[in-house]
C-alpha cells in the first residue's frame, strides 16, 4: 500500500507543501486551508517537520463521528463526506494527532484525503521530505518532535536556571 512518507530531517521549512495543499483544498493559494502543516522547532532556525494525517489504523475521527460521515477511500484515506458531515467537530476532538480541522465557512470538517491517490504535497516538496511510496504507515514525526522539543525545553531550562 502506498503511504505518505515523511522524513522530518529533510524538511527545510519552505512550506511549499502547504501552498500546494491549500490549492487542492480551497482553489486558492492559502496555507491556512492546508491540511498538511509544517511545525517549527528550535525557534524555526534549524528544525521543521511537515505534519499531516497518517491515516492511522485506529481511525479515531471515524469512530467518533456520530453520523458516519468519514469513510475509508480506495487509496486508504479516511475521507470526510461533505454531504453527511453536520459540522459537530467531534472528530477534531477525537483525533489525538490534531490533523483533522473544521472549516467555519463551510461548516464542515476537513482533512487529508491523499488527493485521491496523487498527493500534491509530495509533488511540491523540493527536498523529498514528503514522498508517496510503498511502506507501512506510522506516525512519522512523533519521535522527531519529541526529541527536538526536549532540546528546546532543555535550552529554556538552562536559560531560566542561569
Amino acid at each position: 500500500m502506498k503511504v505518505l512518507h515523511i522524513e522530518p530531517e529533510k524538511c527545510t521549512g519552505c512550506l511549499r507543501c502547504e501552498v500546494a495543499c491549500s490549492y487542492v483544498q480551497s482553489g486558492e493559494f492559502n496555507p491556512s486551508k492546508s491540511v498538511i502543516r509544517v511545525s517549527a522547532f528550535e525557534r524555526g532556525h534549524t528544525s521543521f517537520s511537515p505534519y499531516t494525517c497518517f491515516q492511522c489504523a485506529e481511525g479515531w475521527c471515524m469512530t467518533a463521528c456520530p453520523v458516519e460521515a468519514i469513510d475509508i477511500s480506495a487509496v486508504g484515506a479516511k475521507e470526510v463526506q461533505d454531504d453527511q458531515c453536520v459540522g459537530c467537530k467531534l472528530c477534531t476532538l477525537a483525533c489525538p494527532y490534531g490533523t483533522i480541522f473544521y472549516d467555519p465557512e463551510r461548516e464542515k470538517a476537513f482533512k487529508c484525503n491523499l488527493c485521491g491517490g496523487d498527493p500534491q504535497c509530495a509533488h511540491a516538496c523540493p527536498t523529498q521530505a514528503i514522498t508517496w511510496i510503498e511502506d507501512f504507515t506510522q506516525d512519522w514525526t512523533g519521535a522527531f518532535a519529541a526529541q527536538r522539543s526536549a532540546a528546546d525545553l532543555a535550552r529554556i531550562g538552562a536559560t531560566n536556571g542561569r
Binding site: G13, C14, L15, R16, H45, T46, P126, T127
Partner: peptide, 16 residues
C-alpha cells in the same frame, strides 16, 4: 548545517 529556505524554495542556497 540545515536548510533554511524561503517561501516555497527548493534551492540548496540559504542555510543555517
Amino acid at each position: 548545517h540545515r536548510g533554511h529556505q524561503c517561501n516555497a524554495c527548493g534551492m540548496h542556497h540559504c542555510h543555517m
